[in-house]
Every structure is written in C-alpha cells, then in structure tokens.
Amino acid sequence: MRRQVSSLVVRRLLIALITLVIVSFAVFSATALLPGDTATILLGQSATPEAVEGLRKAMHLNDPAIIRFLRWMAGLFQGDFGTSYANNVPVATLIRGRFVNTLKLAGLTAAIAVPLALTLGITSAMWRGTLYDRIVTIGTIGIISVPEFMIATLAVLLFAVYLKWLPALSLTNEVKSFYDLMRIYAMPVATLTIGVSAQMIRMTRAAVVETLNTPYVEMALLKGASRPRLVLRHALPNALGPIVNSIALSLSYLLGGVIIVETIFNYPGIAKLMVDAVSTRDLPLIQTCAMIFCLGYLALITAADIIAVLSNPRLR
C-alpha cells in the first residue's frame, strides 16, 4: 500500500517534469517568433552587415532552433539565464531582488487570504441557503466575474480617492516604519486577497457542501447533532483533502493576478519586470520570467494533484 502511494507520487512528479519540458519548448518557440533579428536589434540600424554577421556567429544565432533550445535549457539548469539585451546585465542579477519582492507580496496575500477564505467558505456551507450564504455566494460570483484591474481601480477609488487613507502608488524604497510598510502593501495585497479569496471560498464551500450530502452526515443529522457539530466534526475532516487541493489551485490565481496588480500599482516585482521586458522586447528576460511563472504554476498544480491523491484513498 505504502509503496503504491509513493510510486503514484513519483508518477505525478514525472508527468510534471515532462510538462515542464513541453512548456519550456512552448515558451522558447513563442519568443523565437518575435519579429526582428536579435543581432540587428543589439547593434542598431547603422551596423554594417559584417558586424551583424559576426555577432550572429558569436551568439550562435545561425544554429538550428532545436540546438539553441537545448543550449538554452542547459543554461537554465546551470543557473545561467543569459544576459539582458536592454542593459547588458545578467538576467539573474535583474531578477533576484524583484523575485523576493513578488514573493513577499504573494506570501502576505496567502497569509491573509487562506484563513479568511476558509472561514467564509466553511461557514457559508454550514448555513447553506440562509441570507448570509446568499450574500457570500453572490459576492464571490461578482468578484470572479470582473477583471483584476477593476478590483484594483475600485480599491484605489475607495481608499485613495474618496477616503484618502492610502497612496495610489506603491514604492518599496521609502519604507521607514511598519506603518509605511502597511500603507504601501495594503492596496496590492487587498486587491490580490479579494481575487484569491473569492476563488477559494467557492471551492471550499463546494467541497464542504459535497460532503454534507453524504449518507453518514445525514445519519449524524438524524441522531440529532447540531449544525456546527455536523459540519466541523463529521463533514470537515473528510472535506480536508479537497479543501487543501482548492487552496493550492486558488493560489495559482495569484500568478495571473500579480501581473495586473504589479503593473497598476507600479510594484517593483517580477511581473512588472516582465511586462516591461515585453515592451522592450528583451528576449532572455521574457524567457526567464515566463519560466519562473510556469514553474510556480506547475508546482502549485502538481501539489494540488498530489494532495488530492493522498487524501482520497479511492484515487490511489
């Protein structure tokens, strides 16, 4: 039994690895489609054809795409992400600080969103059909139906324009006290939290409701257990697997969310770096950022998958 489980987990990890290779191939070919010759872009319009040809040779641009792809992959594994075209700095240096910033944003959001969403999701399932449940359900439908930038603009309107509590932009370099930190992170974190929580509440509620429909919960109801006891004691332990699964899936929403949120609030994270890289057509930077995002997304999805397998003996 034990061995069967570990072999299943290994299988999922292998699938994830294969997926990663396909994904990196997709990212590489998409960026390889970028119009314009890299050597010409680097040297400028006035470069002589000989100079362009020389640089093409030096950068191995004349090699077949598959060789360049393999070389790029090998570089990634050795921690060599290439050099940014825009300012000739190693991509690794550019990314390091930005990556930490984004992790801070994501971590803070998760720390707030997970407890909040679990509480709302479980309680709304507990009092299913009541006014409270309806308000929560309609609220979450509303939130998942609108684009992230709209949540962000509404947050700015409310807190920065009408209430004047917070600055509309965030800049991390002028942090002097905890209060400053709060003011700067408040809006981006609030926007992300609202988006992530809405997803998580829906999935948590669905997971708990599903367990509430099982015969053993009906049995508990018939023997006279109270509603909170019914949910917390009988349904929740069995819904735990799907709930943890939904947490991992909802957190993957963060990856899309940060792209908008970092741009709108001018937050110096990795998503902002990537959007800027797209506008300057900085190939190595786009590739590396894209791979980081895909890796994070894949890790979360795989984690959700493995948790689902481990928590449900029937899937083993």
């Binding site: 994904v23 990856l255 894209a290 895909c294």
Partner: peptide
C-alpha cells in the same frame, strides 16, 4: 495538458509580444 499549465495571462503576454 502541458499547454494548459501555462498561466493564461502569461501565455497571452508572451504570444502577443511575439505576433
């Protein structure tokens, strides 16, 4: 499934940058 595990917004960003 592999294509599905690229975040959609990121996919859009990269492809739009390219084409």
């Amino acid at each position: 499934d592999a294509l599905n595990s690229i975040p959609s917004k990121l996919f859009g960003l990269v492809v739009v940058a390219a084409v």
